[in-house]
Computed example of a mutant assay.
Amino acid sequence: MSKASAPLRVGIAGIAGRLGRIAADAVLEAEGLELVGGLVSERTPLDNATFVRTLDDLLARAPIDVLLDVATQPGSERWTRDAVARGIPVVSGSSGWSEATLDEIGGVAEKGRVPALFVPNFAIGAVVMMRVAAEIARTFPRAEIVEMHHDTKNDAPSGTAKVTAKRMEAAGAAPVIIHSVRLPGLVAHQEIIFGSRGEVLTIRHDSLSRESFADGIVAALRGVRRLPPGLHVGLELVL
């Protein structure tokens, strides 16, 4: 294979998780992407030939062009820091990051001349929802968010809800209250309710299965290396 047509080599942190398995299938099915292997925590048996514990072990298989992080904490933070410090572009869809840690990793990425893309939600419909919410907030400044996720999601409120609220407030909304629901049977859902004198406007996005994230994952992997060095937030930057 010529250098011009060489595949984009991808490593996946958190490959054994539910989103990690969706991501692995998406990479394997996508044209021009190659799955090198995946990072798993000490709790996960090394019962798959592609599973390794450390970035050193992953790079011993082959160099990678991008690390996709869909791991839980603290592995997510550890592997992302390690990759950025080595000059490997990162796409992270993990949650539970503090603003201070994101700023720190952004500084390391900028200094190392490498892009790091944090994606609150890989569903393309969710990206549209966040953009529309910020636009509506210019006219309807009073709003609240109800975000609903599966009962195994550890953090609340969700990263999607926090970014949505931040963008709405930047557009002129009053401080946005976020309500979180964690129940079995849910996947990922968000409703934004805008209120004004005598009327209510509601927008909502539902991910009915994790397969809704596959196209966004592929787009992020293909697009992250076109971004300038430093920290970036939002799937829309590569769509």
Rank of each mutant, 00 (worst) to 15 (best):
P7W: 06
L8C: 08
V10L: 01
G11E: 02
I12G: 01
I12M: 01
G20C: 00
I22G: 00
A24I: 00
A24L: 06
A26W: 01
E31V: 09
L33V: 07
L33H: 09
E34R: 14
V36S: 10
S41L: 06
T44C: 11
L46V: 07
T50V: 13
R53A: 05
T54A: 09
D56G: 07
D56N: 14
L58E: 08
L58M: 07
D65K: 05
V66T: 07
D69V: 14
A71P: 09
Q73C: 04
E77H: 12
R78F: 10
T80Y: 04
T80K: 04
R81A: 12
A83N: 10
R86T: 09
R86N: 07
R86Y: 07
G87W: 11
I88D: 08
P89N: 09
P89K: 08
V90C: 07
G93V: 06
S94V: 08
W97D: 04
S98R: 08
S98A: 13
S98M: 04
G107E: 11
V108A: 03
A109E: 08
K111C: 03
R113W: 02
R113M: 08
L117F: 06
V119Y: 05
P120G: 03
A123T: 03
G125I: 01
V128W: 07
A133N: 02
A133C: 08
I136T: 03
T139G: 00
V146R: 04
D151L: 01
N154G: 14
N154P: 04
D155Q: 13
P157W: 10
G159S: 10
A161K: 09
K162A: 12
V163M: 09
A165D: 05
K166D: 02
M168L: 10
E169C: 05
A171P: 06
A173T: 06
A174M: 10
H179T: 12
S180K: 07
L183W: 01
G185R: 09
V187F: 13
F194I: 13
S196A: 15
G198F: 12
E199W: 09
E199T: 15
V200K: 15
L201W: 11
T202M: 14
I203C: 11
R204A: 15
H205R: 06
D206H: 13
A220Y: 05
R225L: 01
P229T: 11
L231H: 11
H232S: 12
V233G: 02
E236T: 03
E236L: 01
V238M: 06
